[in-house]
């Protein structure tokens, strides 16, 4: 197998560790939810790890990341402190928003991680504005904006693609097509069918569909897209075909799809796939992988302990940042 991208041994270990961190983080979050320590809506990213980890690390610190409510994976891939994210899920004072945002609203201004937006499609206009700010200032920064297949039927999707293309704004519109908007299959919700990337071409935005379960494919396409976007030619559209192994949220009994479909996709588990590839290519040994597995489990234990032991927010904090 020929390596399509320039990737060294250290990077391979790092990507594996990041994907596994997200997987174990999400599993722990699910457990905390069942224990009643995480409340509200909890949307897990399990199955989609290769997208965030393949894409986000190609960015520089000054670039912006903005996403939807299934946001923990993107936050972790951007380097947001997992302890602060888990504490936020638990509504604690030490959370990324001091317990004011919750699972769907993770922010980290220092890492230019701009949320965590829970109104479907709502982050696309904001991404367009972030890109506009780069253009106004004359820099060569970029915005990476994630959204799901549900968002493409919102007016804000079309308004944003049109304006970003018209003004040649540096934004990567990154569609994570996991085939379901909540419980509705994309075949029943989008007239153009599964190949949604084609709708971007109408707006004169170069668009590519990629295998979202293949980290290297995502990585290569993201690096390529970033190069294009930095050149000042306007937005690029990527559609990663992916799948969530869990329900839409923890409240979802998953009545709308067959178990066999889930099993088919599980064969493509992005972490297992990357692991097999690394072993086959001699990039990682069984021992090295096992070592990472152990370290990640330890880290997640610390993360969970931190979140559990963190204090509740003070009642007075209710009025912090209220200005009108």
């Amino acid at each position: 197998m020929e390596l399509a991208v320039d990737i060294d041994k250290n990077q391979v270990a790092d990507y594996y560790r990041q994907m596994l961190m997200i997987r174990r983080f999400e599993e722990a979050a699910g457990r905390l939810y069942l224990q009643g320590l995480v409340r509200g809506f909890l949307h897990l990213y399990i199955g989609e790890e290769a997208v965030a980890v393949g894409a986000i690390p190609v960015l520089d610190v000054q670039d912006y990341v903005i996403t939807h409510y299934r946001d923990h994976g993107h936050a972790l891939a951007r380097g947001v402190d997992p302890k602060a994210v888990m504490a936020e899920l638990c509504g604690k004072a030490t959370g990324t928003s001091g317990g004011k945002g919750g699972s769907m609203h993770i922010f980290d201004v220092d890492r230019h991680f701009m949320g965590g937006h829970a109104i479907v499609g709502g982050q696309l206009p904001i991404a367009t504005g972030l890109a506009l700010s780069i253009k106004q200032r004359g820099g060569d920064g970029a915005v990476m904006c994630f959204f799901g297949d549900g968002a493409v039927n919102e007016g804000e999707f079309h308004e944003s693609l049109n304006l970003a293309s018209l003004w040649k704004l540096p934004v990567i519109f990154f569609l994570e097509n996991n085939l379901y908007g909540m419980g509705s299959h994309v075949d029943k919700t989008h007239a153009a069918g599964r190949d949604i990337y084609a709708s971007a071409e109408y707006y004169k935005i170069p668009a590519v569909q990629i295998d979202g379960m293949d980290l290297l494919a995502v990585h290569e396409a993201s690096a390529e897209a970033l190069k294009k976007v930095r050149s000042g030619d306007g937005p690029v559209f990527l559609e990663a075909m992916t799948y969530r192994f869990r329900g839409h949220s923890m409240a979802d009994p998953v009545a709308y799809r067959e178990t066999s479909e889930v099993e088919e996709w599980r064969v493509n588990d992005p972490i297992e796939r990357f692991k097999s590839f690394s072993l086959a290519e001699g990039l990682m040994s069984e021992d090295e992988l096992a070592q990472i597995d152990r370290e990640v489990i330890e880290t997640i234990e610390e993360v969970v302990e931190f979140a559990k032991n963190s204090p509740e927010p003070e009642l007075d904090s209710l009025w912090d940042n209220v200005y009108a």
Partner: peptide, 21 residues
Amino acid sequence: DTPISESVIVGAAVGAALAGL
């Protein structure tokens, strides 16, 4: 001058404001 797209007009302003403009 923008297209007639009120949501992205306001949203773009929100994004630009977040970025310090």
